[in-house]
Amino acid sequence: MTARQTRLRPGVMALCAAAGLSVALTGCGGGGDDAKSAATTAASSAPAASASPADPDAATKAAVLASYTSMWVEQMKAYRVASPDGTKLKDFATLDALSAFERDLAHMKNNHTVIRGELGHQPEVTALAVDVKLPTATVEDCIDLSKWQTLDTKTNKPIPLPTAQPLRYVATATVERWDNNRWMVTEYEPDGTRIC
């Protein structure tokens, strides 16, 4: 694996901008029942691999989506408390994706914000290359912020999203199958200009 250059994600900037954060529209978190709700929502909103029974890649697509969805469950746990502690985020995200999430969490902690509510998803595998040295998949996800909320932990009051922030936008993830046969999210890029 080669090191990858990290960069700020536009989506994160817009989302956490409302909270004074460099938010990437990925999530910023809180705890308790909300964490269970987020896990349930993420797991139930992940569609089955968008493939017919005759699709020879159906099982691979399902594995990619399972890893991507697990990354989101762990990310939401972290964003609900503004910390990766106690999560398995590193089991599903690495390289640029993990670095971006860690930057979000640091901004959230510094600005005393967490995330509440639910984040909607509609992920699908849009590209798959398995017969190569490093198998890679592309996942496109329609992110829905309509039930998402950034909370100021000092005042316990919600922080509104920026007025220009779309409630639904496309995010793209690169997912790679590493030597341990585990699919890992290596890049995650929200795109607030692509409405879904």
Rank of each mutant, 00 (worst) to 15 (best):
L151K: 00
P160Q: 10
T193A: 12
T193P: 01
A46N: 06
V64R: 00
L151S: 02
A18C: 11
D152K: 04
K36L: 15
A137S: 08
A51I: 08
T193Y: 05
T193M: 03
V130R: 06
L134I: 13
K157H: 15
K36T: 13
Q149D: 12
V170C: 05
D179S: 15
L145A: 07
P56T: 14
L21R: 08
I195K: 12
T2C: 09
A43G: 08
V185Q: 00
G20H: 01
K133V: 14
C142Y: 01
S37D: 12
D96P: 03
A35H: 03
H121K: 02
R4H: 09
R168L: 06
E187I: 08
L8F: 09
R103E: 12
G31Q: 07
N156Y: 07
E176N: 05
T40W: 13
A164R: 05
V185L: 05
R168D: 01
S52E: 07
A97F: 07
T163S: 13
S146C: 03
A129P: 04
V125Y: 01
L89D: 03
C28A: 10
A127G: 12
V73W: 02
D55N: 06
A59R: 08
D179Q: 11
K157M: 15
L25E: 02
K133L: 14
C142S: 03
D104A: 12
E74V: 05
